[in-house]
Amino acid sequence: MSFTNLETLYRQVIMDHYKNPRNRGAFDEESLSIDMNNPTCGDRIQIHLLVEDDMVKDAKFEGEGCSISLASASMMTQAIKGKTTKEALSMSEMFSDMMLGNDPDTSELDLGDSEALQGVAKFPARIKCATLPWKAMEKGMEA
């Protein structure tokens, strides 16, 4: 597949998550909820996590912002479900490395659709948009 076709595919994946977000909403039962915002561009995200026995049983999000931040939240909530808290934090570190233009080792943990955001690394002003949900999840796990 050519580079142009790959970029087009990634763009389509991002827009699909933005227009058809997965795991949008909140839980009826008590959950770990973390609010974060990016004052630079106005993105606001609230991550809701159901964590039991160091396992992410479920994850949802609410918020408003640009296509990158909302797509990233949708992708992240999908990727961390069923993972241990340690694995979820490792995935967040891998995602941050990817946003810095590095090629993270995804042989043990798969970032799922979040890998479609790797092109964001070319746009420094958008990196905070992509990492916002991941940073919120980290904040909640480390609390």
Rank of each mutant, 00 (worst) to 15 (best):
Q46P: 02
A59K: 00
E87T: 04
A59T: 01
K60N: 07
A88R: 01
S67C: 10
M55T: 15
A79E: 06
A73H: 01
F61M: 08
E52C: 05
Q46I: 12
R44K: 14
Q78L: 12
Q78P: 03
A71G: 15
I47P: 08
T77I: 05
Q46F: 02
D54C: 05
M76V: 11
T77K: 02
D58R: 01
E62V: 02
E52K: 15
E52A: 13
A88H: 03
T84V: 08
S67Y: 11
I45K: 02
D54A: 14
S67H: 11
A71D: 02
K60R: 15
K81L: 10
E62K: 11
T77S: 09
Q78E: 15
V56C: 13
M75C: 08
I80T: 02
A79Q: 07
S67G: 12
T77L: 09
M75K: 03
L70W: 00
G82S: 11
M76P: 01
A79M: 11
L50K: 15
G63Y: 03
M76D: 06
I80N: 00
M55I: 14
I45N: 05
A79V: 06
L49Y: 00
F61I: 06
K81S: 08
G63C: 09
K57H: 06
F61Q: 08
Q46S: 15
T84C: 09
Q46E: 13
G63Q: 03
D53M: 03
E87V: 09
K83L: 12
I45P: 02
F61N: 06
T77C: 14
E62D: 12
S72T: 08
G65W: 03
D54T: 09
V51N: 07
S69G: 08
S67N: 10
C66F: 07
D54I: 03
K81D: 06
E64H: 14
S74T: 10
A73C: 07
E52D: 14
I80Q: 02
V56P: 07
K83Y: 01
S74G: 10
I80P: 00
T77F: 09
S72D: 09
L70M: 15
K57A: 12
Q46Y: 05
L50T: 04
I45H: 05
G65T: 11
I45S: 06
M76C: 13
T77R: 03
K83R: 15
D58N: 14
V51F: 08
I47E: 09
F61D: 07
K60A: 14
I47N: 09
S72N: 12
G63M: 02
T84F: 09
S67E: 06
E87C: 09
S72Y: 03
E62I: 05
M55R: 13
T85P: 10
E87H: 11
T85R: 12
Q78Y: 04
A79N: 10
T77M: 09
G82C: 10
E52T: 11
R44W: 07
G65R: 04
M75V: 08
G65P: 07
D58K: 01
A79P: 05
C66G: 05
I45W: 03
F61P: 04
